[in-house]
Amino acid sequence: MRELLAKHRELVRFALVGGTSFVITLTITYVLKFTVLRTHPVTALIVGVLIATIFSYVANREWSFRTRGGRERAHEAALFFLISGVALGLNALPQWVSRYALHLQVPHVSLVGQEVADFVSGMILGTLLGTLFRWWAFKKWVFPTEGARPESARNDNPDIPDRKAA
């Protein structure tokens, strides 16, 4: 099991960052949805995803993809947030369809039915769709070059000799 985890370290770290981002999204979305954005659930979801995306950039850059790079930092950040914007749209799309195309909202369904539909469409389907897109796009465009930042890998791995000590 350890060998499998080591082989897929980036994916495991990406998943942990994603899980934390999911909790951030969920918390912010529902706090907003049940307080100041009661009549704007898709907006609440978008705000939650935006805040989680900022956390995600820092965590993915410095931890998940810490040895990847290949771009100047400003270019990398711009691509990250552009791709995250596309993913945000993909994340919100299922909830938008649920609410406004399928009318899975009060008064057409019960409040419980509405909340279950919002959770499944926005938090589950939307998050899954956005996450799959991000994994592919981040590796392809944002952090394309493996081993581009070996200094940070050296700091985390005692098996890699430090140039300064030599």
Score class of each variant (00 low, 15 high):
residue 1 M to N: 06
residue 2 R to I: 14
residue 4 L to V: 09
residue 4 L to E: 04
residue 5 L to P: 00
residue 5 L to A: 12
residue 6 A to H: 06
residue 8 H to R: 11
residue 8 H to L: 02
residue 10 E to M: 03
residue 10 E to S: 08
residue 11 L to Q: 10
residue 11 L to V: 15
residue 14 F to N: 03
residue 17 V to C: 04
residue 17 V to I: 09
residue 18 G to D: 05
residue 18 G to Y: 07
residue 19 G to I: 09
residue 21 S to W: 10
residue 21 S to K: 07
residue 24 I to Y: 08
residue 25 T to C: 05
residue 25 T to N: 12
residue 27 T to P: 05
residue 27 T to N: 04
residue 29 T to L: 02
residue 30 Y to N: 15
residue 32 L to I: 10
residue 33 K to F: 14
residue 33 K to T: 09
residue 33 K to Y: 15
residue 33 K to V: 04
residue 34 F to G: 11
residue 35 T to K: 05
residue 37 L to M: 13
residue 38 R to T: 04
residue 38 R to E: 10
residue 38 R to F: 09
residue 38 R to M: 08
residue 39 T to Y: 12
residue 39 T to G: 12
residue 40 H to W: 09
residue 41 P to K: 08
residue 42 V to I: 15
residue 43 T to I: 15
residue 44 A to E: 07
residue 44 A to N: 10
residue 45 L to A: 14
residue 47 V to F: 12
residue 48 G to M: 05
residue 50 L to I: 09
residue 53 T to K: 01
residue 55 F to C: 01
residue 55 F to Y: 15
residue 55 F to R: 03
residue 58 V to D: 00
residue 62 E to Y: 13
residue 64 S to K: 00
residue 64 S to V: 01
residue 65 F to V: 04
residue 70 G to Q: 08
residue 70 G to M: 02
residue 74 A to E: 09
residue 75 H to D: 11
residue 78 A to P: 01
residue 82 L to R: 08
residue 83 I to W: 05
residue 86 V to P: 01
residue 88 L to A: 14
residue 88 L to I: 12
residue 90 L to H: 06
residue 93 L to P: 04
residue 93 L to T: 14
residue 94 P to G: 06
residue 95 Q to C: 06
residue 97 V to F: 06
residue 98 S to F: 02
residue 99 R to A: 15
residue 99 R to D: 15
residue 101 A to K: 15
residue 104 L to R: 09
residue 107 P to S: 11
residue 108 H to G: 07
residue 108 H to A: 15
residue 109 V to P: 04
residue 113 G to P: 02
residue 116 V to C: 06
residue 116 V to G: 11
residue 118 D to H: 13
residue 120 V to M: 11
residue 121 S to Q: 03
residue 123 M to I: 10
residue 124 I to G: 06
residue 124 I to M: 12
residue 125 L to W: 13
residue 130 G to F: 00
residue 133 F to L: 00
residue 135 W to L: 07
residue 135 W to A: 02
residue 135 W to S: 00
residue 136 W to V: 07
residue 139 K to F: 00
residue 142 V to C: 01
residue 144 P to S: 06
residue 145 T to S: 10
residue 146 E to N: 11
residue 147 G to F: 04
residue 148 A to H: 08
residue 148 A to C: 13
residue 150 P to D: 12
residue 151 E to F: 06
residue 152 S to P: 03
residue 152 S to C: 05
residue 154 R to S: 11
residue 154 R to E: 14
residue 157 N to Y: 03
residue 157 N to I: 13
residue 159 D to S: 14
residue 159 D to G: 04
residue 163 R to T: 08
residue 163 R to S: 11
